[in-house]
Design a protein around this nucleic acid. Structure first.
Length: 458
RNA sequence: GGUCCGGUGGCAGAAUGGCGAUGUAGCGGACUGCAAAUCCGCGUAUGUGGGUUCGAUUCCCGCCCGGACCUCCA
């Protein structure tokens, strides 16, 4: 069954465009095919909770778009050639291909565990070297790029609109330049399109010698190949706004001056850890893998949905625990009143999501439906479930949520529950409590109800 | 230093030119052998100083504080 029937396409979708710095009503270039591009990972290490934020934001956006439009083409790249990859492979004494293949698989595993919707196309940089060289050639031909000491550099002064996306001028940036400027650059802001590779580094033959592409070029080449020179939405973490997206935009617009490149730019706020940006270079990161040992995937998803994508989110294990308790309540409500499938997503939730993906407001609505479902209201249960499904929640049954992955087998648990019931019948509460405490130690919580004793994992 | 974003109860987090959601934590109660869950009830918040306005948490300015970016970053 199509999701179209559960959504109201007439509600306007407003998204914040970081280029114009304003909320804009999203109007597709081609309503029959929405095209969006998100920057994916550089595959040299496991993705962490900060990386997850942009992936999850894209996930919610794509789910909403796919519910509203016939066809959505979602491209998310894999950066599999990069200096950090080379360095890590060297440190690990590992073959580069083995490192990127392994890390890519871990990336997919982590995202699958979170039910992150897969991109329709997931291109790899190393498979598009030809596209990149063609762009370089075009940029040189139009005097937007120049060769210097085996490098090819983009000339930022050749593009009048350079800095327009990130809202900064070349003068401002030079004032704060903190990195040593390579002597072969005409301007400090010029960035590498192609750089030479040493003997022991991966490289491709090119008119400029054996080398490899600069980081920004791959996204320009791959977005153009799969989405065309102009497409609807380009997104990523807001730390990519400058220089990555600024440079992508410069390259792409200089290659295809009549195009719009990305019409709508979406940037996701940073995840902090103890008040500081979570990043690999700071070393204050937690991997998705580790977080999933601490709490179920949907608790992690709910934690992220609980804050707006553009605001910073200060991660803590306590907040993850809280999200877990909220999911407990939601699943309990669905257990109390099992929902019917294919119900319409309630309007308040749609309105919230269409208002720049206001997931915290949408979640607040879910609590109201949970109250109703807890009280036996069928329509509230249906609403809760439909809204949650749109947000990527409720992929499990209640019994899977409460009783999945426990250390004890069901027979043992039930036998102990029966022993405890006997003890309670005999008013031997000391023994009953002892059995309950024993189970609690094993991560099993008992709940006495009028209909008998049930259990769930702690 | 330059550019930008933000500061709402213990915590998280919406919204709004005039009643400041929701959740979580806390407290009290019902229920329970005791718990758990559930239900009922309670409390506490718009960083600071000005301005505009009949009225500002919301709009404007200064200040303080926090974070991001300034060519590694989601």
């Amino acid at each position: 069954m199509s999701t179209k029937s559960i959504i109201t396409p007439s509600i306007p979708l407003r998204l914040y465009n970081s280029h114009s710095r304003a909320l804009e009503v999203f109007t597709p270039m081609d309503a029959d095919n929405i095209r969006l591009y998100f920057c994916g990972p550089t595959v040299y290490d496991r993705v962490h909770l900060g990386n997850l934020r942009a992936m999850l934001c894209a996930d919610v956006l794509v789910r909403l778009l796919k519910a509203r439009y016939e066809t959505v083409t979602y491209v998310r790249n894999i950066t599999d050639i990069d200096d950090k990859i080379i360095a890590r492979a060297r440190d690990n004494h590992e073959d580069i291909d083995a490192l990127t293949a392994r890390t890519t698989k871990e990336f997919h595993d982590d995202l699958n565990a979170l039910s992150i919707i897969a991109p329709d196309i997931e291109p790899r940089a190393t498979q598009h070297i030809g596209d990149m060289l063609a762009m370089i050639s075009s940029l040189i031909a139009h005097n937007h790029a120049y060769e210097a000491e085996g490098h090819v550099l983009f000339d930022v002064h050749s593009f009048d609109s350079y800095g327009a996306l990130s809202g900064r001028s070349l003068e401002d940036m030079q004032a704060g330049a903190r990195v040593e400027v390579a002597p072969y650059k005409r301007n400090p802001g010029d960035f590498v399109l192609w750089k030479p590779s040493a003997e022991d580094e991966p490289g491709w033959e090119s008119p400029y010698g054996r080398g490899r592409p600069g980081w920004h070029l791959e996204c320009s080449a791959m977005s153009q190949r799969y989405l065309g020179p102009s497409f609807d939405i380009h997104g990523g973490g807001n730390d990519l706004l400058f220089p990555h997206h600024e440079n992508e935009r410069a390259q792409s617009l200089c290659c295809t001056p009549d195009s719009a490149f990305a019409r709508h730019w979406l940037h996701v706020g940073m995840l902090l850890c103890n008040g500081e940006k979570m990043s690999k270079s700071l070393g204050n990161f937690h991997t998705i893998h580790k977080a999933l040992e601490h709490a179920p995937a949907e608790a992690l998803r709910l934690l992220y949905l609980g804050s707006h994508y553009r605001s910073t989110l200060d991660f803590s294990w306590e907040k993850l625990d809280e999200a877990r308790r909220i999911m407990d309540r939601f699943y309990r409500a669905l257990e109390k009143t099992p929902p019917r499938s294919n119900s319409a997503v309630p309007h308040p939730v749609q309105e919230a999501l269409c208002d720049d993906l206001n997931t915290p407001l949408a979640i607040a609505e879910l609590h109201k439906y949970a109250d109703g479902a807890m009280n036996g209201q069928q329509e509230d249960a249906d609403s809760l479930y439909a809204a949650g499904r749109l947000l990527g929640l409720f992929g499990l049954t209640s019994s899977e949520w409460f009783q999945g992955d426990v250390s004890l087998d069901t027979e043992t648990i039930n036998a102990l529950i029966n022993q405890r019931l006997e003890a309670r019948k005999a008013k031997d509460f000391a023994k009953a409590d002892e059995i309950r405490a024993h189970l609690t130690e094993q991560g099993i919580l008992l709940e006495d109800t009028p209909n008998g004793t049930t259990w769930r994992k702690a």
